[in-house]
Design a protein around this nucleic acid. Structure first.
Length: 867
RNA sequence: GCCGGGGUGAUGGAACUGGUAGACGUGCCGGACUCAAAAUCCGGUGCCAGAGAUGGCGUGAGGGUUCGAGUCCCUCCCCCGGCACCA
């Protein structure tokens, strides 16, 4: 056996062994439970980053652990291969996104393989390949048939210089990232998926997911946002070209119908017909509507921006009081959300309150809470309280509580035919059209005579040409005659193909079911899918807690309703790993755009005020420090693990990553512990080599005493803790248990009894480490003669017999402060323990001659004397 | 702004249902080996006072419940994730 730890050799050998024995090929095995372990597939951005290493090591640890515990496992891998970074790379390097993507996949696959992951590579997927995305298109057509997919207008960010649609990420402070031009809102047609048709089930089925973290379920429930409210109308006779606008009714929705008597104005979106009407004759309104075109479409921006508005001069009628109510245009009212208009009750809504104060609009109290005094000077929390309030200044509704008021008011509105109760969802339908090249083509043909015609199934897939090079000025498909020109499937006349592609969330909404299938060319999924699904353990970043997971749940339910699969929920258990964070550095370009720099190109310093400043190593020019954030391709703050793997080996990288922090916790990147992880593996190897030289010893482990007995107890105690932590995925303390074991073994004596315990302990330690550092465990298991394959060995369990002790040490406290400890026999009763405690010198000193008021004994742990 | 999570030594983190705060690492200090360094090994290391025994303080800040609080409750501060076209 080699005396020095040589990760290069043992890792290559172990990996060869797994690939030759097809150790991780997923097959149905009778009599064994299945375990489908899935890590979120990576976007092929070029190189793995530490977040990937973390994610895939967690998945591999769980896969190998389950394999050793008798499961038949499936752990697949693939590529979320469509997306924006490929187009950005094309703009920068003039390389087609397809070539860039395939090159990245080849490189990253090598990296993944060098980590020694137990992946069934025969099930690899790349979403940019026609044999995969064909089924995106096919299912989209089924959704069109069922009315789940439909067309309507959508609001997008428009860069007027590049003449292109921008992603939210490409808008920096209201300007295009490349051009620095002021971004405009534009309304264009696009396809939507009716996820709201499934809102009720998506909400209710969260209860069917006990294996999901509560925090993720809470976020999803809040996102779906079921609310019970009232939709009602303000009648008016505002006419445009002689006809009443919207039949003379201004509809709004509110969850606070109980405050309806406090309405002092209504606010409509800039795109609302009433605003458009007012703009025709009122310059101020027209100017404001124009200004609103530059308001961000992002919710975070809308929520934090200054609320502004302008009076249209128009009036509508309050449906209950008959009073005339002014109509304002507000920049915070969104046309695409609800009715595009809201009733404003400044007295009981914080946003309306601020708006009314700003424009000196009346504030009318209509809710009272006992013992509280209302004042229009300043907003107070209780103004918005619907639990404890009753109506006031509200005529016949005075004295009613929230629910009574809503019920009565809804009934009155209904009687007037001006409204009714309505359940509303915060969740909006899913807009999937992207005005981009590098995505799955939407299978639609536009015909001058027949309109938008679905591509017939037998013409699928609509294949995306792979040789385009986007230049930042719109979708290059517009210039591709061979893609664009086709014949109408209905009438046979010349027609044009749709050039929009699908949101990449479509690709990732069902890949897990394709992995699990038999990869048929004539079916999206098959019977094998139902065998492996649902995923037993899904692992991925917490940043996907809402969108990706919600879309996947929705897509699964649509597939179920099409009888393609038989499960309601795709992911039985979810582990949301925390982000790996690193520093972010950027700098404004001359055009007003933004450029990022990798942390290793930058030197960080602190100024006198303790603020972090930074400059480029290359030329010393100053760059802006943007704080710390998730490792991402676009911000260039990822750390490539390759250098680590090359220098220390995959086992060190895996061990370090698992040891650094528990999986769910965010992790600020620092490589200072890598050496320590490597040192541990070197010590393990050296200890193994030494033990191989000394040789084994037979000794009855049931008849140990002294050192050997204590050593064995220590090992089994650490094993008990490790198994407990393994089950709750706290791998950092599993590693520390393994380190404790090795520390204990290194200190142990060389007599026969000790060596027999070491023999047992090493076999435990190697099996325990095998999921985390599989290569070294594989090599030592064979070298020390425990067997051919540690993966085939049984998972170790602590033995009760090894854990018993004759004497216990109890902590002594006086008034909750630790003052010493006592040793008692394991069989001592409460009275004996109390007596021993009170007799203790330190306790006597604290009691100072007095008698204890009370003595609390926590069995096996401590005694607290209350003085 | 809203929703979700987090804050513990110099540092990554541990502490099971409220029961010895700082496990296991890193770093640092001292020692051994060495001509020397690296590597390796041994010992120490929360802060303050003290020669020491020991005492006091200590889990973002402030308050509360309890024999006992990092853990439970209230108020506040800071950081991270998501907010629908980054993936």
């Amino acid at each position: 056996m080699q005396q020095n730890y040589s990760p290069k050799d043992i890792e290559a050998t172990a990996q060869q062994h797994w690939s030759q024995t097809e150790a991780f090929r997923a097959v149905k095995e009778s009599g064994k439970p299945k375990y489908y372990c899935l890590s979120m597939f990576p976007y092929p951005s070029g190189k793995l980053h530490m977040g990937h290493v973390r994610n895939y090591t967690i998945g591999d640890v769980l896969t190998r652990w389950h394999k050793m515990r008798g499961y038949s496992v499936l752990q697949p891998m693939g590529w979320d291969a469509f997306g924006l970074p490929a187009e950005n790379a094309a703009i920068a390097n003039k390389v087609p996104p397809a070539k860039w993507t395939y090159d990245n996949i080849a490189y990253m696959k090598k990296q993944l393989q060098s980590l020694g992951l137990g992946i069934d590579w025969s099930r690899e997927i790349a979403t940019c390949k026609p044999d995969y995305y064909k089924w995106n298109q096919w299912l989209f057509l089924r959704m069109l048939e069922k009315g789940i997919a439909y067309k309507k207008t959508q609001v997008v960010n428009w860069d007027p210089v590049d003449q292109t649609v921008l992603a939210n990420e490409q808008v920096i402070d209201g300007r295009g990232w490349r051009t620095g031009a002021l971004v405009e809102k534009r309304e264009i047609p696009g396809y939507y998926l009716g996820i709201t048709q499934y809102a009720e089930e998506l909400l209710a089925d969260l209860d069917k997911l006990p294996g999901w973290p509560d925090r993720v379920k809470a976020m999803q429930a809040n996102w779906i946002g079921k609310s019970f409210g009232v939709r009602f109308a303000f009648p008016h006779d505002i006419k445009d070209n002689g006809a009443a606008i919207n039949d003379g009714k201004l509809w709004v929705y509110t969850t606070r119908a109980d405050t309806i008597m406090g309405v002092t104005f209504v606010a409509v979106a800039a795109e609302h017909p009433l605003a458009a009407h007012a703009a025709k004759s009122n310059k101020d309104v027209a100017a404001f509507v124009e200004k609103c075109k530059h308001v961000s479409v992002m919710e975070a921006d809308i929520a934090t921006m200054e609320k502004e508005g302008v009076d249209t001069g128009l009036k509508v009628t309050h449906p209950l009081t008959g009073e005339q109510v002014p109509v304002w245009v507000g920049n915070y009212v969104l046309m695409g959300y609800g009715e595009g208009a809201v009733m404003a009750v400044p007295a009981h809504d914080e946003r309306d309150f601020g708006f009314a104060k700003k424009y000196s609009l009346p504030i009318k109290q209509s809710i009272r809470v006992a013992d509280k005094t209302f004042s229009t000077d300043k907003w107070l929390e209780w103004y918005g309280d619907k639990e404890n309030g009753v109506c006031v200044n509200s005529g016949k509704y005075d004295g009613l509580n929230y629910q009574q008021a809503v019920d009565t008011i809804a009934a009155d509105l209904k009687a007037k035919n001006l409204g009714d109760k309505q359940v509303q969802w915060r969740l909006r339908d899913w807009g999937i059209s992207r005005q981009r090249y590098w995505g799955c083509p939407i299978p639609i043909i536009h015909c001058d005579s027949c309109g938008s015609v679905p591509v017939p199934d037998e013409q699928l897939p609509v294949v995306l040409p792979e040789d385009c090079v986007p230049d930042g000025s719109g979708n290059p498909l517009h210039k591709r005659a061979d893609f664009l020109n086709c014949t109408c499937p209905k009438c046979g006349k010349p027609a044009r193909r749709e050039t929009d592609t699908m949101d990449t969330f479509v690709d990732s909404s069902w890949y897990y079911s394709r992995y699990a299938s038999g990869f048929k060319s004539d079916a999206m999924v098959d019977e094998e899918t139902n065998h492996w699904m649902p995923v037993d353990q899904y692992i991925g970043g917490i940043e996907h807690a809402i969108l990706h997971l919600l879309y996947s749940r929705f897509w699964s339910k649509v597939m179920r309703d099409l009888k393609l699969v038989n499960y309601d929920e795709p992911f039985a258990n979810l582990l949301t790993q925390g982000m790996v964070l690193n520093h972010i550095f950027s700098h404004r370009t001359d055009k007003g755009g933004i450029q990022y720099f990798a942390p290793n190109e930058v030197e960080m310093m602190k100024d006198e005020g303790g603020r972090i400043t930074a400059k480029l190593v290359s030329d010393g020019s100053a760059v802006d420090y943007q704080g710390i954030g998730t490792m991402s391709k676009s911000k260039l703050n990822g750390v490539d693990p390759q250098a680590l793997i090359d220098e220390y080996g995959a086992d060190t990288a895996r061990l370090f990553m698992m040891f650094a922090a528990p999986p769910e916790q965010t992790l600020e990147w620092a490589d200072s512990g890598v050496e320590g992880a490597h040192r541990f593996l070197k010590r393990l190897w050296a200890f193994g080599a030494e033990f191989a030289n000394i040789g084994k010893e037979t000794h009855d482990l049931g008849a140990l005493s002294g050192d050997a007995k204590a050593l064995r107890r220590e090992i089994h105690l650490a094993l008990r803790q490790a198994n407990y932590d393994m089950a709750r995925f706290q791998f950092n303390t599993v590693v520390s248990a393994a380190m404790k074991m090795l520390n204990a073994l290194e200190k142990s004596g060389k007599e026969a009894a000790n060596r027999a315990v070491v023999n047992e302990a090493l076999s435990i330690l190697l099996r325990l480490l095998s999921p985390i550092t599989p290569h070294i465990a594989h090599a030592l298991w064979r070298e020390l003669g425990y067997g051919d394959d540690v993966l085939a060995a049984q998972w170790p369990e602590p033995l009760e017999a090894a854990l018993v002790q004759d004497e216990l040490e109890l902590v002594l406290q006086v008034n909750g402060k630790m003052r010493g400890s006592i040793k008692v026999s394991a069989s001592a009763d409460k009275a004996a323990i109390e007596a021993a405690a009170i007799a203790h010198e330190a306790v006597q000193k604290q009691l100072n001659g007095g008698a204890p008021k009370k003595v609390i004994v926590v069995p096996g742990r401590l005694v607290n004397v209350v003085a």
